[in-house]
Amino acid sequence: MSQDHIIKSYDEELTRLTGEIVRMGEIAAYQLGAAMDVLERRDTRAAERVIANDDAIDALEASVSYDVVQLLARRQPMARDLREVLAALRIASAIERIGDYAANVAKRSTALNRHAPVPAAQDIRTLATLATELLQQVLVAYRDRDAEAADVVRRRDADLDALHTQVFRELLDDMAREPSTVPSCAHLLFIAKNIERIGDHATNIAENVWYLVYGEEPTEERPKSDESSQIS
């Protein structure tokens, strides 16, 4: 077998692996959108379908992990090729966690349906829209091996943090002003935190894209603007 054929075969395997991971991310983004839809429609049956669909992401993550082990065993990659494989494993893990958080949003929505609706749900939608944008953008950056585009996502996580802090404050204000909203607002607080964590994992993906391309972690500290833990 010629060296050119071996290289081509390996490149094809990496391309297929990247495609699997991007597909995983697209499913996770869809799951978050579906979770927000059932939250707003207060549709418990549809929420249960969203929760069940998390199995598809878990199965893909298991498939990626298997493919990575096979690549490591057969190809014994070094340098940039090794970074490709390690980044794939880390990114797939981050996407699997994103899928879990989307499922958690759907689970919380079923509990929320047992209480009166509160207006803050619209602010949650804005938060989820931004988190989805970050996830979609970092998937493109990973597909294109574009470290600079990934760094833009990394920096935009501060916007998501700031918005989460705003939502957190508004929900606390609602609970103080109208105690009857406490059960609903408590569930929304958990939902908002799950979405904020999705942004954190999108940022983790961005940092892995940077590592993949340059062989080092980003030198600047990740910008953070979440002040919810300091609010009392």
Rank of each mutant, 00 (worst) to 15 (best):
M1Y: 13
Q3T: 06
Q3R: 12
H5L: 15
I6K: 13
S9H: 12
D11T: 12
E13F: 01
A29C: 15
Y30V: 12
L32E: 00
M36A: 02
D37A: 12
V38D: 04
E40K: 15
E48Q: 11
A52E: 13
I57S: 02
A59E: 15
L60V: 00
S65D: 14
Y66Q: 14
Q70T: 10
L71P: 02
R75L: 08
M78P: 00
A79D: 12
L86S: 07
A88T: 03
I91G: 00
S93Y: 07
A94D: 14
I95S: 01
A103Y: 05
R108C: 07
A111H: 14
V118F: 06
V118K: 00
T129I: 08
T132W: 01
R143M: 11
D144E: 15
A147Y: 01
A149L: 04
D151F: 05
H164F: 15
R169I: 14
D173S: 13
R177P: 00
T181S: 10
P183I: 07
C185S: 14
K193V: 06
N194W: 06
R197W: 14
R197M: 13
A206S: 10
A206G: 02
L212R: 07
E216F: 03
E217S: 05
T219S: 11
E220I: 09
E220G: 06
S225C: 05
D226K: 02
S232Y: 08
